[in-house]
């Protein structure tokens, strides 16, 4: 295996409380290889988003990433970056689709302005150049360029989702984090978006960290899967193994609690 694009080592994250601290992530370690589709599953509240936020260091107090944790992106420890380096690192190397991607576009800026933001800050592009690039990116997700002048509220939920993905691809990141990007969408749109991501991933070569509590969906799209339970990573294995012969008790229970809707369809191609 080539050097991992993301390598998390002994990650510990606390939420500091007035009296007691709450450890949301307990000594988690895992790797994601370049171009790999990695799934992170676990029930609600087990700490998935907390890990995702830590990779780009987006946490706000009272979250605290404990000393001793390491988050290596391309071999560089993100936790050692200073303010400026961190700013340059964000979005260029790791982009992220948020849990409620529908609400992650700024309601008072046009779509174009939200592309320009990124392209100007990181690449110093002019408005015209940014507009062209933005139109190209929108084409990747099948959105006509005239939507650039629109405001987020004028686009449907699925459209907004795809726009966010297009913004994510603006700088050719090495890693795309998707935190339950599809929970608010209906099943058809959900599947369509995941397939599109899969196609783009193969074309552009980025890795994906995909988070959900829908294990069935995850098995269909992921190469490898990590299972989380109350802040701990209890099992990491390739998708087939997780599906056919889960090792950990909790994974088995997780499967047992899943409605067997997905049958044997394991790869997205099969379901399409």
């Amino acid at each position: 295996m080539s050097a991992p694009v993301l390598s998390i080592r002994n990650l510990n994250i606390d939420y500091i409380g007035a009296e007691a601290n709450f450890r949301a992530v307990k000594d988690v370690s895992f790797d994601i290889a370049p171009g790999e589709f990695f799934g992170l599953a676990g029930e609600s509240g087990c700490g998935k988003s907390t890990i995702a936020f830590a990779v780009s260091r987006l946490h706000r107090p009272p979250a605290l990433i404990r000393t001793g944790s390491e988050i290596l992106v391309d071999g560089r420890d993100v936790l050692e970056l200073d303010k400026d380096a961190l700013r340059r690192f964000r979005w260029r190397e790791v982009a992220m689709v948020f849990q409620s991607a529908m609400n992650s576009l700024n309601p008072v800026l046009t779509i174009e302005a939200q592309f320009y933001d990124v392209l100007h800050t990181h690449k110093g592009m002019s408005r015209e150049a940014a507009r062209e690039r933005a139109a190209e990116l929108l084409k990747l997700v099948d959105i006509p360029p005239d939507r650039l002048a629109a405001y987020p509220h004028q686009c449907s939920g699925g459209m907004r989702q795809r726009i966010v993905i297009a913004i994510c691809l603006a700088l050719n990141p090495k890693l795309l984090i998707m935190d339950e990007p599809t929970t608010a969408l209906d099943v058809v749109v959900q599947r369509e978006i995941l397939q599109r991501i899969d196609v783009l991933r193969k074309r552009l070569g980025f890795a994906v960290l995909f988070i959900t509590h829908d294990l069935g969906l995850m098995v269909q799209v992921s190469d490898r899967i990590g299972i989380m339970l109350e802040g701990e990573l209890v099992e990491v294995n390739d998708a087939q193994t997780i599906y056919r012969s889960p090792q950990h008790d909790y994974t088995k229970r997780l499967w047992a609690s899943m409605p067997k809707l997905h049958g044997d369809q394991i790869r997205p191609e099969a379901g399409a």
Binding site: R60, R90, M96, A101, N103, L105, N106, D117, T121
Partner: peptide, 19 residues
């Protein structure tokens, strides 16, 4: 508003603090 996703996304985009 500070917890809203579009503000977190603004930070994730690597924009300057003031922006």
């Amino acid at each position: 508003l500070l917890g809203e996703d579009y503000i977190v996304m603004g930070r994730a985009k690597g924009l300057a603090d003031n922006r």
